[in-house]
Nucleic acid binder design. Structure first.
Lengths: 220, 220
DNA sequence: TTTATCGAAATAATCGATTATTTGACCTAG
DNA sequence: CTAGGTCAAATAATCGATTATTTCGATAAA
């Protein structure tokens, strides 16, 4: 969905869409919270029409729930849904990585190395938002040459859903360290063209990451 | 996405969304065609705001393409994309059916029998739109108890995409007959709780159906 | 002949105001 | 007291008009 809108002077609706999307992923609005349209208009300094268009897109994308005549709500969070999202990510990203390892060219290898390098640096030297961006880019780079546009689309969508949980979770340095090590391992396996093992590690990575994310459900 | 909007007095935007979705699936607008907003307003007798909201939803859903400052276009059709959609359907619906066979209860069995019965009757005695509705319902009933909301969501979305091709294709009685026979076979295997074989038949069914759909790409 | 530029017409996006619906407090009948 | 009903305030949805951008034909320059 992110690149559904083509280039060209960004319209107010697409600017507000991206801002709202980021704020939703970062947990600025609480789960289940009702979004007052006139309040949002004041917050983002934008007219009603583009704002409503952005909200409609977000609802169709799955980050908001729309009830006729009752406006928009942030989606609820539940451990059950996190399990569902995790299982889907394992399935889809695992498959995509297998294909990417088979189809990826030298350019892909370079991109992958670069993405991991930037991510590693950012882990110690950049603010969280910067790291989040590079983390998304790394995982995207990993599966990019899988050859299926629809697979990539669903993966991105699930990634956004997953991040709503993960970004809400408290820090857990030990798990984070193991997750970072897996990033490196994935790069190595990808370059070695070991599709089978790469898939296994990615699936473990997603499961481990879901353990971090699950901590967000155990908050008050 | 179809049930994203909850009950309650349908709003103009959601009514127009559903109408447009049906018309897009039925090929009322040509692939790649530009949708003039003011023309649509006249056609559907609706104001600009709800119309634009519906178009935004459809773009986020993947039935339209939106370019900033240049309005909305119907998505193009291509054999390559049909292959992608078909492969994704095989993967996702195949997995969903396995799960459904494992989890489905007696109520599911009844629903399945009923859905197939209605579909079979409609094949000879109902207009095409009626058959299309029942056909969607049958395939939905098949995988409904798979236990994963996201899996079902993606399956529905892919089904809509697939139907853009299939409904455009010319009749092919021989293939249609084999496809109908597979519906019966799927019901039998589901009731017999033969998950493995049911999955195989469903994947064959989707592939065979894509052969029909592919005929739409060979038109002028 | 081709390419570039300008400007009017067409069309998309946005705004401000209006209408419709829901919410919740208050009241009354049972 | 409680259930149901009424009404006013709050909020969502929609409309009509305005603004911004693109498109395309006509003209001029290379």
């Amino acid at each position: 969905m992110n690149d559904t809108i083509k280039q060209g002077g960004a319209t107010a609706a697409s600017r507000i869409y991206e801002m709202l999307r980021q704020d939703l992923l970062n947990g600025r609005y609480g789960a289940g919270e009702r979004l007052s349209i006139s309040l949002l208009r004041d917050t983002y300094q934008v007219g009603l029409s583009p704002l409503r268009e952005a909200l409609n897109r977000l609802a169709a994308y799955g980050l908001l729930r729309q009830e006729n005549q009752r406006g928009f709500r942030v989606l609820e969070l539940s451990p059950e849904e996190l399990v569902d999202i995790t299982e889907m990510r394992r399935q889809l990203e695992g498959r995509a990585l297998e294909l990417a390892v088979q189809h990826g060219d030298e350019e892909w290898e370079s991109q992958l190395l670069a993405a991991n390098h930037r991510l590693t640096r950012a882990a110690t030297q950049a603010p969280v938002v910067e790291w989040e961006l590079l983390h998304s880019r790394f995982h995207n780079a990993l599966v990019a040459p899988c050859g299926s546009a629809w697979l990539l689309r669903f993966i991105t969508q699930l990634h956004d859903q997953f991040d709503r949980y993960r970004r809400l979770a408290p820090r857990h340095d030990e798990l984070r360290h193991r997750l970072d090590a897996q990033h490196q391992e994935l790069v190595d396996l990808a370059l070695a063209r070991n599709a089978r093992r790469a898939r296994e590690v990615l699936e473990e990575h997603i499961t481990l990451s879901s353990e971090v994310a699950m901590l967000s459900c155990e908050q008050v």
